[in-house]
Design a protein around this nucleic acid. Structure first.
Length: 157
DNA sequence: GCCAACGTTGGC
DNA sequence: GCCAACGTTGGC
């Protein structure tokens, strides 16, 4: 089993949106970066654990999800009306791929990026490397467990 | 909203 | 294959 961090802008798609979906599941469409695509296409397996990250607006890890469906073509790429339309991708020869993720839990309190930068053991996380914009990142088991332990022990206000 | 850092594109 | 120009990401 592998561990990942997936970024989304909460005004586009938040952890609450995921929790409110039918089956609490959603295809992770719209990724148009080759490295991120390759992680989804080649490496992500059902049951992999995901840290759900909100970027730009209160940047923070806000909960957990799991991979519930492995790589399949991202059909939004061949929809002309879609924001992420890419004419190079066709149903016959898809260029972009996505996995499906399923809601697992929302932390009582988000763990802000600012805090993550100061937690011992997380120094090597890709997330806190300057200028790293990758929207899907591998995370080690140790990093995952440190973050989840903090997330789970945070208490509601 | 700004802008630095990055990835991609395309002319040569 | 280089690299300037461009578009995007994402913290602040």
């Amino acid at each position: 089993m592998r561990y990942w961090l997936m970024k989304t802008e909460p005004n586009e798609f938040s952890i609450d949106d995921l929790a409110n979906r039918p089956n609490q599941s959603e295809p992770w469409d719209g990724v148009r970066n080759y490295q991120a695509r390759n992680f989804m296409r080649d490496d992500m397996q059902i049951g992999d654990q995901v840290l759900f990250y909100h970027s730009r607006i209160d940047p923070s890890v806000v909960g957990m999800a799991t991979v519930s469906k492995t790589s399949h073509p991202d059909f939004t790429a061949w929809d002309k009306t879609n924001k992420h339309f890419d004419p190079r991708s066709t149903p016959e020869k898809p260029l972009w791929f996505m996995v499906e993720v399923t809601f697992q839990s929302k932390f009582p309190e988000p763990i802000p990026l600012k805090e993550i930068k100061e937690i011992p053991g997380l120094e090597k996380m890709m997330l806190i490397k300057k200028g790293c914009r990758l929207s899907i990142q591998p995370v080690t088991k140790e990093e995952f467990e440190i973050i989840v332990a903090i997330g789970d022990e945070s208490t509601p206000k």
